[in-house]
């Protein structure tokens, strides 16, 4: 294992970097879309229920199946992976965002409206600061789930740590299998712990 690391360091750190890149890209797009959807859901109860149910259905589609279904439409590669991962994240993010914002004490928001704040001011100065831990918890869940499902994205040529796992599996190459498993598990555990620490400080 150490020999593999010293001899082919690029075969380990490139997938790792690719993986982090994939997760980061997905996260940025997901949070942007989820924020817009959350705002829409706060406006309309019916849309909110309908959207949550739809996303729950999408979320329970196995990732390999979703990748397979998307390939005829968007082809192999990172684009497809990002689309699928973003779709999964919407369920986690939207659920946490809406419940987080709803759990803000209505007395506080009413008071804010009472002193003449516009809804945008209420949102950015009252609701978001008060709900930031719940919002951040949603992001943490989404990141950890993206790291996990992201390994499977290697099966559709999206790169990342899954390449080590799938290649290792095909050639029965133990160092690759072990590095792939350890790094993907480690990345998930470390990221989760770090974000949890940030969350507890908020």
């Amino acid at each position: 294992m150490i020999k593999f690391l010293t001899r082919h360091p690029e075969k380990i750190y490139i997938p790792l970097l690719e993986h982090i890149q994939l997760v980061f890209l997905t996260l940025v797009i997901s949070v942007a879309i989820a924020s817009i959807l959350t705002l829409l859901c706060m406006r309309s109860e019916r849309l909110s229920i309908w959207l949550q149910q739809l996303l729950a259905v999408v979320y329970s589609i196995p990732s390999l199946a979703l990748f397979a279904i998307l390939i005829p439409v968007t082809g192999l590669g990172r684009t497809t992976a990002v689309i699928a991962l973003t779709a999964y994240n919407q369920y986690l993010l939207l659920r946490n965002f809406t419940t987080g914002l709803q759990e803000v004490d209505s007395a506080v928001t009413d008071a804010a409206k009472g002193i003449g704040m516009t809804w945008l001011q209420v949102l950015t100065r009252v609701q978001i600061p008060l709900a930031k831990r719940a919002l951040f918890a949603g992001i943490r869940l989404a990141v950890v789930s993206t790291i996990g499902i992201g390994t499977i994205a290697a099966s559709i040529n999206a790169g990342g740590l899954g390449t080590l796992l799938f290649d290792g599996l095909r050639t029965m190459n133990m160092p690759r299998i072990l590095w792939g498993s350890i790094l993907s598990a480690g990345l998930a555990i470390v990221t989760n712990a770090l974000l949890k620490a940030v969350e507890d400080h908020l």
């Binding site: 790291i147 996990g148 390994t151 599996l169 792939g180 598990a185």
Partner: peptide
């Protein structure tokens, strides 16, 4: 809780050896 965080593919592949 830690086990929940580990990617499923990693667990699946790691078990082969």
């Amino acid at each position: 809780h830690v086990l929940r965080v580990i990617p499923s593919l990693a667990i699946l592949v790691l078990l082969i050896p």
